[in-house]
């Protein structure tokens, strides 16, 4: 019984950390630019497809180290795309209505889907975990796929690094000051536009990294960007938009809610996620962790 509960909780945690990997970049960009980037899921997808291609190029077995290096390469490539998107699209969205930027970035998501379909075809592709992570391990009497544990570890590490950067380093503190009051920051001599670009590129790097790390998590398809973005929206709204710690906690919470919901109400898997998101927007629109950044 207890083992069952633990297994469900672990599944929720894997889901949560996977979505947090996606949501971290999204919330970073929103925190600084106040643009809810619909195309974020599309770039996670491109990252995953890039990882798929790179892993196929290596042929044969890919070790954990090679796998992580590939994920970093995807992060760099998607970060570069982020630079272009920032110049072409985001630059022009700073003074428009929220809804307009939502739609403009939705258009970019369509472009991502079109790009993936033309470059890799419309069919499902599958990526296998790297050698060393394809098996499963016993944790006590829990039998967990080792790749699932890897996802949890990756989520936690990304969170810790991001949190350390934002709260403990000078550049992170500048970032936060721009998020709170860009006008004041520019008065103090901070190059706000450069910070905006850094935030966007940083967000895209995180998208590419998430794509690379999560490629073996599910089959790849051109629909994948849309699926991830909806889950990530839920997580960052519940966590308080722009709040990385909030997103981390919300990801765990929503993962657990969804995992337990799916087990206890198996007729309707997945609905508890949406119910929880709706309830939290209604009663705590500022998110669970407002005020704490």
């Amino acid at each position: 019984m207890l083992a069952d509960l633990l297994l469900i909780a672990m599944n929720g945690l894997v889901w949560g950390m996977a979505v947090f990997l996606v949501a971290s970049g999204l919330t970073l960009i929103f925190g600084i630019l106040h643009i809810l980037n619909f195309s974020h899921g599309g770039f996670v997808m491109i990252g995953a497809y890039l990882a798929f291609t790179l892993m196929n190029m290596l042929a044969g077995s890919v070790g954990i180290v090679a796998f992580i290096l590939i994920a970093f390469a995807c992060a760099a490539a998607v970060g570069l795309m982020g630079f272009v998107v920032d110049r072409v699209v985001f630059e022009r969205l700073k003074r428009v209505d929220d809804s307009y930027s939502l739609i403009a970035t939705y258009a970019v998501l369509l472009l991502c889907e079109g790009f993936v379909k033309t470059a890799w075809g419309p069919n499902f592709q599958s990526v296998y975990p790297p050698s060393g992570l394809e098996g499963a391990v016993f944790l006590g009497n829990l039998f967990m796929p080792s790749y699932a544990l890897f996802v949890i570890g990756a989520g936690v590490i990304v969170f810790l690094v991001l949190d350390f950067w934002l709260h403990r380093t000078p550049s992170g503190k500048i970032m936060k000051s721009v998020a709170v009051d860009p006008w004041m920051a520019s008065l103090l001599g901070i190059n706000v536009n450069a910070i905006f670009t850094v935030a966007v590129v940083g967000g895209f790097v995180l998208a590419g990294l998430a794509g690379g790390l999560l490629a073996p998590n599910q089959s790849l398809s051109p629909m994948m960007g849309g699926v991830y973005i909806i889950q990530a929206f839920g997580v960052i709204i519940v966590g308080g938009i722009g709040n990385v710690r909030g997103a981390f906690i919300a990801a765990i919470l929503l993962g657990l809610i969804d995992a337990f919901g799916t087990v206890y109400v198996p007729q309707f898997p997945g609905i508890f996620f949406y119910v929880a998101v709706a309830v939290i927007i209604l009663f705590r629109p500022q998110g669970l962790l407002s005020g704490i950044h």
Partner: peptide
Amino acid sequence: MVGVAELVVGGALLIVVL
């Protein structure tokens, strides 16, 4: 044309919005 529809629609939408 596989994928071209999304590219055209996405591109057109982006141009209109921007």
